[in-house]
Write a protein that binds this DNA or RNA. Structure first.
Length: 148
DNA sequence: GCCAACGTTGGC
DNA sequence: GCCAACGTTGGC
């Protein structure tokens, strides 16, 4: 089993939004980065642990524990001209972008970026690295255990 | 709003 | 294949 940190802008889909969805499960739409896509396609398995992270907001940080709830499949928003995630270069017979379903298991007390940075045992957590912009990053078991 | 970091695009 | 220009992310 692998572990992941997945960023969501709370304006788009907050942990509360996800909890309010049927089965507390949301399709993780909008990933438009090949490295993040490849994680979903090649390495994610149903049941993997997910740290639900709020980004681009007043208090960025980890706000919930979730799980990968589906295999990867094409992200339908890439074919929707009205979607901000529309990709005119992607063909339905060769979809470029994928998503997985993510099921929130529980909220956590917010663990802010500042708090994460203050913990020496988390120094190597990828999301804390300078310049990191990946919306999906793998989390080492020791980091998962330190956080959960 | 600023700006550092980084990914993508496209001319050559 | 190189690399400058450009666009995006995301913390502050």
């Amino acid at each position: 089993m692998n572990y992941w940190l997945m960023k969501s802008e709370p304006k788009e889909c907050s942990v509360d939004d996800a909890l309010a969805a049927p089965d507390a499960t949301v399709p993780w739409t909008g990933v438009r980065n090949y490295q993040a896509r490849n994680f979903m396609r090649d390495a994610m398995r149903v049941g993997d642990g997910v740290l639900f992270y709020h980004s681009s907001c007043a208090e960025p940080g980890i706000v919930g524990i979730a799980r990968v709830a589906s295999e990867s499949r094409p992200d339908p928003t890439q074919f929707d001209p009205r979607s901000p995630y529309f990709d005119p270069a992607s063909r339905p017979d060769a979809p470029r972008w994928l998503l997985v379903d993510v099921q929130v298991l529980r909220k956590t007390p917010p663990l802010t970026l500042a708090e994460l940075r203050a913990r020496p045992e988390l120094a190597d957590l990828l999301v804390l690295k300078k310049g990191n912009r990946l919306s999906i990053t793998p989390v080492e078991p020791r980091h998962w255990q330190a956080i959960t």
